[in-house]
Nucleic acid binder design. Structure first.
Lengths: 109, 109
DNA sequence: TTTATATTTCGACATATATCGAATTATAAA
DNA sequence: TTTATAATTCGATATATGTCGAAATATAAA
């Protein structure tokens, strides 16, 4: 088997690691559904606070914070302080990159 | 944040875990490129042995074996003994599932 | 300025993961 | 049947991960 790593393998494997935890995947899916920016990226409704994201997951705030850090560091989400809370939303380019990653793998190109 | 897990979250998080390791991702990409079944699924060239997949990765055969088991258990690849060797190939449906997973996430549906 | 709220950082700990080499199993070849 | 090849399983070990609670930090409210 010849080397089949490209320059992005490391980056993609880090995104997959971020999504390999069920709590992080759930957060990611929630953000993808509710907080995908675009036409209304400045609208408060398009973003979710750390506290909001923690609701219903049954884990400590410090753990949520840890998970969000992982999602951010892998390039899947963005975070920005807004007053007392910190707002989170999906990094839109990365979602498209992931689709292309698997389409290319499927195409065998 | 409301629960956003669906019935498949667990299964997807396991695939992402399998792809979170650089060695496994490399194996997966190699198989996707070279061993995607279809019109020639019985052709020897469409499959790769465990030994072949280990070449050039610089890790022990037992470790390759471990990684392939993870890829198989997560549903990303298939394996079948053929004489002395064990042949590996991509599970084609799963690749399409992954594309749809991210397309759906992007669509916000 | 003091207090309350939201979040992060730190230190600890239990569990999971990646890896190896040795031993084992399965098959084919001599 | 004995030997060689391919791959897996096992046991060990070092490192990484998920989690918590306590303490620290940032901001807003009183």
């Amino acid at each position: 088997m010849s080397k089949y790593k490209n320059d992005y393998s490391k980056q993609f494997s880090e995104m997959f690691k971020a999504l390999s935890n069920e709590h992080r995947l759930e957060i990611f899916l929630y953000l993808a559904k509710n907080c995908f920016p675009g036409e209304l990226s400045t609208d408060k409704e398009m973003r979710a606070s750390v506290g909001k994201l923690g609701e219903g997951l049954g884990i400590a705030p410090s753990t949520i914070s840890h998970h969000l850090k992982e999602l951010r560091q892998s390039g899947l989400i963005r975070m920005e302080r807004k007053g007392k809370t910190i707002e989170c939303w999906i990094e839109p380019d990365t979602l498209e990159d992931l689709i292309q990653f698997f389409q290319q793998a499927k195409g065998g190109k």
